[in-house]
């Protein structure tokens, strides 16, 4: 059987809120090392990769590898019934067709069990090669969210450029143009307010803002976001999940025909 008890249940609620509008159905792959998920959006433009390591759980048991087929909208409905401070336990039998979510209130005076039907999903797993990215930028996740939202009101695509000076986001549309530059700033008080640029080569790529906007639904998971870019490769937008792993989004670039 599989059982995972998560003291900080709100993390799972946040993960679902971040991905439920991008991906419809997906397998949660459970193994003795944790829970992993990989899924594409329906247009095959973006890919989501989630890792929740066993060590981040208060209790974790997985007797054999299980692929739990889940409709994310339905799981989100269930998790919305958990309080933000609740402990969430996931349970599934090896041959079962349901998953149980148990919510425990912080002082243990309310215990709720929600059972959700699983589905059979033929998933296509993609091998993501290790890449030495030309530019890696870490910046406040709220700042990234703000920039992407602001640019979305002006254009449909954004050019993201990284030089040793910083990272720039540009767009254009019927009403005009916009260009935002965030400079490296490592001398701010709080580490989470820093913007850091690691660069091997300047890079500039074009992406659909609609997807970048969708990725920023993960902002609540981490105060910082890391953007990794290389010429003619998908951008990686990564939110680290404290003690547990990460939520990564890969977005295919737009290129000249």
């Amino acid at each position: 059987m599989f059982e995972g008890r998560l003291l900080q249940g709100s993390l799972l609620k946040k993960v679902l809120e971040a991905i439920k509008d991008l991906v419809t159905d997906t397998n949660f792959d459970c193994s003795e090392t944790g829970i992993a998920l990989q899924a594409m959006d329906s247009s095959h433009v973006a890919l989501v990769s989630l890792l929740l390591k066993d060590t981040g759980f208060d209790h974790f048991r997985c007797d054999r590898n299980l692929a739990l087929g889940i409709n994310l909208q339905n799981m989100s409905k269930m998790l919305k019934c958990a309080g933000n401070d609740d402990i969430i336990t996931l349970k599934a039998e090896d041959e079962g067709d349901t998953i149980t979510f148990m919510f425990e209130s912080p002082n243990q005076d309310k215990i709720s069990d929600f059972e959700m039907k699983l589905m059979d999903i033929d998933s296509e797993h993609l091998g993501i090669p290790d890449t030495d990215y030309q530019a890696i930028v870490t910046m406040p996740s709220a700042e990234f969210q703000r920039i992407v939202r602001d640019l979305s009101s002006i254009g449909d695509t954004a050019v993201i450029g990284v030089t040793k000076e910083g990272i720039s986001f540009s767009t254009g549309g019927d009403i005009g143009k916009a260009n935002i530059v965030c400079r490296q700033n490592t001398n701010v008080d709080k580490e989470e307010d820093q913007t850091t640029v690691e660069i091997h080569e300047p890079v500039s790529l074009t992406f659909a803002l609609r997807y970048l906007n969708s990725f920023t639904k993960a902002t609540a998971l981490s105060p910082q976001v890391t953007l990794s870019l290389s010429k003619e490769l998908p951008i990686v937008v990564e939110y680290k999940i404290e003690k547990m792993g990460f939520l990564r989004f890969y977005l295919a670039p737009k290129i000249e025909e």
Partner: peptide
């Protein structure tokens, strides 16, 4: 004109 690429074209199907 810019063309949206497919994410699958960048990764290997396992």
């Amino acid at each position: 004109a810019l063309k949206q690429t497919n994410i699958k074209s960048f990764f290997v199907t396992k």
